[in-house]
Amino acid sequence: MAKQAPINKRRPLRAVMLALAGLFLASILVPRVLPPPVTFLMVSRSLEGEDLSYRWRSLDDISPRLVEAVIASEDSTFCAHRGFDMKAIEKALKANEKGGRIRGGSTISQQTAKNVYLWPGRDWIRKGLEAGYTVLIETLWGKRRVMEVYLNVAEWAPGVYGAEAASQRWFGKSASDLSAREAARLAAILPSPRRYNASSPGPYVRRRASRVQAAMGTVRNDGLADCVLG
């Protein structure tokens, strides 16, 4: 009677590990060319009974003014850094040590990684994963794609995600037709989109939008958005 060949117990484990690695790689590469269907935040809000308005638009169909506005407001070194603004992080840590209102130091790249791949929260596990995903999308997507995804998945009002849905919600027009003033207002409410109003802003948003619009000129003149618009 012929002897059976010994079973290699490592083969099933190796196959599982290769499959998981393939799925992980696909999760990074697929959003490089295809719109993310939904995000964890969208699903979470929907499960809470909130309506969902999410309309993907290519970067070519979004006003360049909005790109300038979010760079001016959220991440002035977007085109220069490789995912992390160490000076902003250092300032945030020092400010947070003094107590009071927690200040963030996240770049647009970090926010994109968080929005696409991770659950809401501030725990250290999530922050570690955010850093890893940030490195990957900076390396494999490039700046233009990072900005495109960010503008399409950011929350701009309760249940409103992306520049197109936000433009329709607040100004009744397409994201491609946003003026500099309207773009500045949208960028001004990004830190607290569930609290502030872009179309009929209060004093705080008006002041912040004015500062953003002024900074947009610097972004344009100094080429701070050239990695996206150039």
Rank of each mutant, 00 (worst) to 15 (best):
E97Y: 13
K173W: 09
V43N: 09
M17Y: 13
L118E: 11
K87Y: 15
F24H: 05
T107N: 09
T218V: 13
P203L: 04
N96Q: 05
F24M: 11
N115P: 11
N221K: 00
Q110W: 10
P193H: 00
A188M: 02
L29I: 12
G217R: 11
A214T: 14
R11H: 14
N8A: 12
R207P: 06
V149D: 10
L47N: 04
Y54N: 05
W170V: 01
I7A: 07
L18R: 15
G22L: 03
M42L: 08
I189S: 00
A19H: 02
R144C: 01
V219P: 00
R14C: 09
E182S: 07
A184N: 03
V219K: 00
F40A: 14
L151K: 01
I62K: 07
Q4R: 15
E74Q: 08
A154F: 03
R45Q: 12
E148A: 04
A26K: 09
V33S: 10
M147H: 10
A80I: 11
P37K: 10
A72F: 01
F84T: 13
T39P: 06
D177P: 05
R220F: 03
S73P: 03
R10H: 15
E138T: 11
L25Y: 04
N152L: 01
V146R: 00
C79T: 04
I89M: 06
V38W: 11
E90P: 10
G121I: 04
F78V: 05
L118P: 08
D85W: 12
A183S: 14
V116P: 04
I102L: 13
R206T: 02
D61H: 11
E148Q: 12
D51Q: 10
A88T: 08
Y54Q: 09
L23M: 08
G22H: 02
A180C: 04
V70T: 05
T39H: 08
Y133H: 09
S27T: 14
S167M: 04
G172N: 07
W156Q: 11
V116R: 07
T139I: 06
R126H: 09
E97N: 10
R82H: 13
D60L: 09
E48H: 06
G99E: 06
E148K: 07
A72G: 00
E97W: 12
